[in-house]
């Protein structure tokens, strides 16, 4: 369950203030597949970073999977990021010095799981994502699609309830973009995960259960239960 009320994030840039999002009210049930749409600067990434516990709101309330992110301490937020959410980024954000399987197991190890247990889980995920052959390759040796699938494996390693994806197809060609969206949709449909995707693209429109339009930091047109 994701609940926000009057959620606002304002950034200070020198003397000026820039509104990231303003008075956003959301009520997302578990198992939804939500697509956040809007132009650049509309507030999609800001909203996503607040939902992921990467940032603090300026004001308003935000509760994700029972965690009150507004009042959570830095260490509680770290725990939240480890166990509740999995993030997928536009630029993949894999660590360049470690290979595919090491990138995948990293969040599990950070959460205190053993290497053997984590590797087993990672191998299953990589097999599902058709990356088994590439598990010992460094990110620089992968294609864009492979890198994004590795990022999805990493996001899933701790079995998070919620998957947050920020422009996951932005750096991919249309074929790989489709593969990634299909995988996220499969996670939502078959594994019951809540998936929230911020994107310009219309690739995710079909599988989405909710599409939220943002403009200038405000929700302008939620489309529920399509």
């Amino acid at each position: 369950m994701i609940l926000t009320k009057g959620l606002t994030r304002i950034y200070s840039l020198g003397d000026a203030e820039v509104v990231g999002i303003e008075n956003v009210d959301l009520d997302i049930a578990p198992g939804e597949m939500v697509v956040l749409k809007g132009n650049s600067g509309s507030g999609k990434s800001t909203l996503l970073s607040l939902l992921a516990g990467l940032d603090h709101p300026t004001r308003g309330e935000i509760t994700v999977a029972g965690y009150d992110l507004n009042s959570a301490s830095p260490s509680e937020l770290t725990l939240f990021r480890r166990e509740v959410v999995g993030m997928v980024f536009q630029s993949f954000n894999l660590l360049p010095t470690i290979n595919v399987i090491e990138n995948t197991v990293l969040p599990a190890l950070l959460a205190g799981k053993t290497l053997s247990e984590s590797r087993k889980k990672a191998s299953e995920l990589l097999e599902w994502l058709k990356l088994s052959e590439r598990s010992n390759h460094l990110p620089a040796q992968l294609s864009g699609g492979e890198m994004q699938r590795t990022a999805i494996a990493r996001a899933l390693i701790n079995d998070p309830e919620i998957i947050l994806a920020d422009e996951p197809t932005g750096n991919l060609d249309s074929k790989n973009g489709r593969i990634v969206i299909d995988l996220l949709a499969e996670l939502n449909r078959k594994r019951g995960r809540t998936v929230i995707i911020a994107t310009h693209s219309s690739l995710a429109d079909d599988p989405a259960s909710v599409i939220i339009h943002l403009k200038d930091g405000m929700v302008i047109h939620p489309e529920w239960d399509r």
Binding site: L54, M87, L95, L106, L110, R154
Partner: peptide
């Protein structure tokens, strides 16, 4: 810096 932010976003603590 970006890698550090990624680590933080996937659950790495600042102390680590």
């Amino acid at each position: 810096r970006k890698e550090l932010a990624i680590l933080r976003s996937i659950g790495g603590s600042s102390q680590m």
